[in-house]
């Protein structure tokens, strides 16, 4: 944990395509941005869900992959030097004088004039398997992500899943664990081939245990896990353990933003269609996370919203300055900001 205090003009929550493009629109208006994302990379859904899938409805771009769009956007916003703060989620929001103060689970505090929520479908959070009473053990014996692996030392660990996260943690934790059992529904794993090979070797040498099946019951007392039951067809096998680490990928949840006093409509944030501002002054919501009459969840709509939002954001950050509308094609001052020769 780092105790970091950061002063900024504009804090963007969500580094998906719309969050990234808003850096451009805000940058043209001399607004400096810090951008937060829960993932460890920019790109949001484009990077996490469909990096290789083509998108066909970006104006002027007949076909581009999710990854391609993200890397183009990152290039486009380079002149504005946005500061990325990745792998963290916003938690608290507080009004302090005429600024907003936002805390993250990483321990940092942002003091900002303007907040732009561009969080898409919400924050990507680990999927929690619907096993009975699993919540009783969460944060004591069951962990969906790992910040401090020391607490697993000399414990009997069960890791469930067959993807990159599950296998990476098998490789990382097996040397310090008392015992490690990997549970997966099939013999095939989907991860980087080198990782898969290493895990297969650990299984074959008996260094770790592998159980085919799916976890269907937990037992223990006082939040302390003692045993997981693994079901494979009609057979049930019990494994004694103190720690369970399920890795079943990510799902999107609105998260703590839901408690920020913003008007919500079916888990989407209500905004006006002139400024895309929420019911709180200087807090905007753009892209898939917002709702208004006629809303379409398209990346191109998010881009439009970013452009209009930036105009109003400017009035909060530079209350005494008037905006002269300019085109990037012809304005020498905009070209200068973009670092192109006029």
């Amino acid at each position: 944990m780092q105790a970091n205090r950061i002063e900024t003009d504009c804090l963007i929550i969500g580094a998906g395509p719309v969050g990234l493009f808003s850096v451009f629109e805000l940058g043209l208006l001399d607004i400096k941005c810090d951008i937060i994302d829960i993932l460890d990379k920019p790109g949001g859904q484009c990077a996490e869900l469909y990096p290789d899938k083509p998108i066909y409805d970006i104006p002027g771009v007949p076909e581009i992959t999710g990854e391609g769009l993200v890397s183009s956007l990152i290039k486009q916003i380079e002149p504005f030097n946005p500061v990325f703060h990745l792998s963290r989620i916003v938690t608290e929001l507080k009004k302090v004088d005429d600024r907003w103060e936002v805390k993250t689970d990483f321990g940092d505090t942002f003091s900002t004039k303007v907040i732009v929520i561009a969080a898409g479908g919400g924050s990507f959070q680990p999927k929690k398997p619907p096993i009975k009473d699993i919540e009783d053990y969460e944060d004591f014996s069951v962990f969906y992500s790992i910040r401090d692996k020391d607490k697993f030392k000399d414990k009997d660990i069960v890791i469930a899943g067959g993807g990159d996260s599950a296998l990476d943690w098998v490789l990382d934790l097996h040397t310090s664990a008392k015992s490690l059992t990997l549970v997966h529904r099939r013999k095939e794993f989907r991860a980087v081939p080198d990782t898969v090979n290493k895990v297969q070797e650990l299984i074959e040498s008996g260094t770790i245990n592998f159980e085919l099946g799916q976890i269907n019951q937990l037992s223990g007392e006082n939040n302390k896990l003692e045993c997981v039951s693994i079901k494979n067809g009609d057979q049930i096998k019990d494994i004694n353990c103190q720690i369970l680490l399920p890795f079943f990928g990510l799902t999107m949840k609105l998260g703590p933003v839901a408690d920020w006093g913003l008007n919500l409509n079916e888990n989407l944030i209500e905004v006006d269609t002139e400024k895309f501002e929420t019911n709180q002054n200087a807090i905007f919501a753009i892209g898939d996370i917002n709702t208004y009459p006629g809303k379409l969840k398209l990346i191109l709509c998010g881009f439009h919203e970013a452009a209009l939002m930036a105009q109003q954001a400017h009035s909060y950050i530079y209350p005494d300055k008037k905006i002269t509308f300019q085109y990037t094609t012809s304005s020498s001052s905009l070209k200068k900001k973009l670092g192109v020769k006029s």
Partner: peptide, 11 residues
């Protein structure tokens, strides 16, 4: 799809 089903539950 099989790979993706690893992220579903009770498959």
């Amino acid at each position: 799809e099989q790979d993706m089903l690893d992220f579903a539950f009770d498959v």
